[in-house]
């Protein structure tokens, strides 16, 4: 199970993969930017798509499991060298519950497990805020953690 690559003079390079179930996936990288994706089922049905480079990258991301769900402002990342690890990054808008208190006051790490990576206040971001950082109403935070820790954080500080 590996890609076979072929040079296509005047067009680009073709990569072909035959799956275990007898389907074939062909990807053609064209010299003048752009990718064509072909899938042929075992029965011989063809379908194809003409992709711009950003579209091709997006599909690649989805296929590798790093799904970008921009509408929810959440990224779930899987690294090939840490295959069992599923890290989420999520942004939340904070309300009254945290206003006027510091990160260490709230004991965020200990009680939920997540780490605050950045805080956005009126359009300006503060990366890796110190434990003495004081939240204000309307701050957005970017937190990192596994899905369970993320749930804890939501229950304790956001809702």
């Amino acid at each position: 199970m590996s890609f076979v690559s072929r040079d296509m003079p005047g067009i680009g390079t073709k990569y072909e993969l035959d799956t275990e179930d007898g389907d074939r996936v062909s990807i053609v990288y064209m010299e003048d930017e752009g990718v064509q994706l072909y899938v042929r089922s075992g029965e011989g049905d063809y379908c194809s798509a003409d992709l711009t480079p950003p579209e091709a990258r997006r599909i690649g991301n989805v296929l590798t499991g790093a799904i970008l769900e921009t509408e929810e402002e959440e990224i779930c990342m899987v690294f090939s060298s840490f295959a069992d690890l599923k890290i989420k990054m999520h942004t939340y808008k904070l309300g009254d519950r945290t206003a006027g208190r510091t990160i260490s006051d709230l004991n965020i790490r200990k009680s939920t497990g997540v780490t605050i990576v950045a805080v956005s206040r009126k359009g300006e971001s503060i990366i890796n805020p110190p434990a003495t950082f004081v939240f204000e109403r309307g701050d957005s935070v970017l937190v990192i953690g596994n899905p369970e820790q993320m749930k804890n954080f939501e229950e304790e500080f956001v809702r």
Binding site: S26, Q36, Y38, S48
Partner: peptide
């Protein structure tokens, strides 16, 4: 015409 996956297309190009 989306024919690049077909094996004939390699033959044609060569």
């Amino acid at each position: 015409n989306r024919k690049l996956a077909a094996p004939e297309s390699d033959t044609i190009l060569w």
